[in-house]
């Protein structure tokens, strides 16, 4: 487990979180390279399917980063995203995966420090939790020739 490097997906809204990541860049703040950003116009665009696809594909942690509460560029997209994150957590719980692997985080465009700190904390948390159990399950499943999971096939989780 010592050389476990978690793979983390961060869905970042264009107006706040993604801009905060740029800000972290221009301030040269260091954070772990485990976090990979996918840019979306608004956190409200992040579908439950995408969260579940990430976990199913083997991501060890996923977070949605949107604007601060009440400050969404699109009024309420972040609130909807937060609701979907709660829903996705419940789905994880139902299938026996730690719900803490998915989180909602809020920050403003100026919060470069917050972006870096979040990446740091979330990575540390996931590192502590160990690899996504899906990967272990798949490792066992692969031995069964009738159950090779095509990685590109869409999840029917919702």
């Amino acid at each position: 487990m010592e050389d476990f490097e978690p793979v983390i997906v961060a869905f970042c809204c264009h107006y706040c979180a993604y801009t905060a990541a740029d800000m972290a860049g221009s301030l040269r703040l260091c954070y772990p390279p485990n976090v990979k950003i996918i840019r979306v116009p608004c956190s409200g665009k992040v579908d439950t399917i995408h969260l579940m696809q990430a976990i199913k594909g083997g991501a060890d942690g996923v977070y949605v980063a949107g604007c601060l509460e009440g400050d969404c560029h699109f009024k309420s997209g972040n609130a909807k995203a937060a609701r979907r994150v709660v829903y996705a957590k419940r789905l994880l719980n139902d299938v026996g995966i730690e719900p803490e692997r998915i989180e909602m985080i809020m920050m403003s465009a100026g919060m470069g420090e917050r972006f870096a700190a979040t990446a740091e904390e979330f990575t540390a948390k996931i590192r502590g939790m160990g690899p996504n159990p899906v990967k272990l399950m798949r490792a066992t499943a692969i031995r069964d020739p009738h159950n090779v999971s095509p990685a590109h096939k869409e999840s029917a989780a919702v």
Binding site: V9, I38, V40, P41, C42, G44, K45, V46, D47, T48, I49, H50, Q53, A54, G57, A59, H73, F74, S76, G77, K80, A81, R84, A151, H152, E154, V158
Partner: peptide, 28 residues
């Protein structure tokens, strides 16, 4: 913003430039 696209249960709405297959492909 794409909120409608994410909420649509039938996946009848796509957000141009941020289509679902584009996002899925990034994940893959």
């Amino acid at each position: 913003c794409g909120t409608c696209a994410a909420e649509c249960p039938a996946k009848a709405i796509e957000l141009v430039q941020f289509e679902d297959d584009v996002i899925t492909a990034q994940l893959n």
